[in-house]
Design a protein around this nucleic acid. Structure first.
Lengths: 202, 202
DNA sequence: GCAAAAAATGAATATTGGTTCAATTTATAA
DNA sequence: TTATAAATTGAACCAATATTCATTTTTTGC
């Protein structure tokens, strides 16, 4: 005799999976990041530790899903904000603004995507640097276009893209970990100008 | 009856402490950074695990000494390279060049000082971000001076300094972790130009 | 309501890595 | 050379966490 899940059970299980993911997000985003234990996550999700393993193969599987999920959220926002523009500089600026707004609005997301306080967890490290490399690649595409159109001087666009992302990341992390700057407008403008000038925009 | 160490023994012990520190450097600089265990360090240093505790109170003490040591090495180099210059831009450029040369020459040093693959080791995290914050502070001093002299436009110098260091760090780490760029000259010039233009140098 | 199946539980197990310590080896000073 | 101090060793201990599994609870289909 084979039993089938009822609609209600399916929903309950989906909700549980969501609860686990949210609990993990919360805990990952928290200050010391020391307590990213399955026990802690399970507890916060309101389930027994063993139950976790009914929903995820192991800890790595959770991190994989989690990172993919929040990375997709970010990309969707960026995509949406870039859509109105065709000019390369405008697109880059829109990207930066979208990121700043998103990260400052959802600091937990920034903490997870930009900060690297991985355990000695290999999977996390790998996934994480994949994301940063992705962001660099996307930026490089814009830069190659701008250089093609001779709107920025001859340069190693991979290096510029890396510097661009690095500058951005360091500043956002600084804001996340310490306090936000007093004069937010000036700070925003400084960061965006720094990167735009860095590329060689006149 | 109290015995006194002979010269030979003192030397042997100093050499052992050095060996431990070097072993720790090597292991910390290694790819996956998973095996920064005392056992591994002791093994590489050619001593028993228990012996480690005759030379360092605990793991934190080792990390403390280690980071201080290599940070000092870097600062000494920077200081020396900056010495000939008085102009703010020149000093900044000298700093960058010194760092690039040092880091590319001693990649293990870069890996430890710039990369952050800390365990969930609180001490390491703290010491580490202290160093980065230090570098940002030093840069800010230069920028304040330049802004004072109206050589760069009005800006939030803390933000610029942070962006400056972030851009730099991301690029160096990229070079360390992947391969160095094909056209090194162009790459160097791109990085330095990016940062100098970013500040608003005409 | 009942028996089989599925899901959930959390104590037990396994693993990893820091630290200790009784036993051993080496060094000192007469 | 010998008695004692100091240094070294590495197995044992401990703590923290990921993972498993025998037991219990809930759900399903009748």
């Amino acid at each position: 005799m084979v039993y089938h899940k009822t609609e209600k059970i399916i929903e309950k299980q989906q909700s549980r999976k969501r609860k686990i993911l949210n609990a993990a997000r919360e805990i990952l985003a928290e200050k010391e990041m020391g307590s990213t234990s399955i026990k802690a996550i399970a507890k916060r999700a309101g389930i027994a530790t063993g139950t976790f393993y009914l929903y995820f193969k192991d800890k790595d599987a959770l991190i994989d899903v989690l990172l993919k999920e929040i990375y997709k959220e970010l990309l969707d926002i960026i995509k949406k904000e870039r859509a109105p523009f065709t000019n390369g500089f405008d697109k880059l600026e829109a990207t930066m603004k979208a990121c700043i707004d998103t990260f400052m609005g959802k600091k937990h997301l920034a903490k997870i995507l930009l900060d690297l306080s991985p355990q000695n967890n290999t999977v996390f490290n790998t996934k994480f640097s994949d994301i940063i490399n992705d962001l660099i690649s996307f930026t490089k595409i814009d830069l190659d276009e701008l250089m093609e159109q001779q709107l920025i001087p001859e340069q190693d666009t991979l290096v510029s893209a890396t510097a661009f992302v690095g500058a951005f990341r360091e500043v956002i992390l600084y804001w996340i970990n310490s306090d936000e700057p007093l004069d937010i407008d000036l700070a925003y403008k400084t960061l965006i100008n720094f990167n735009m000038r860095g590329l060689g925009k006149n």
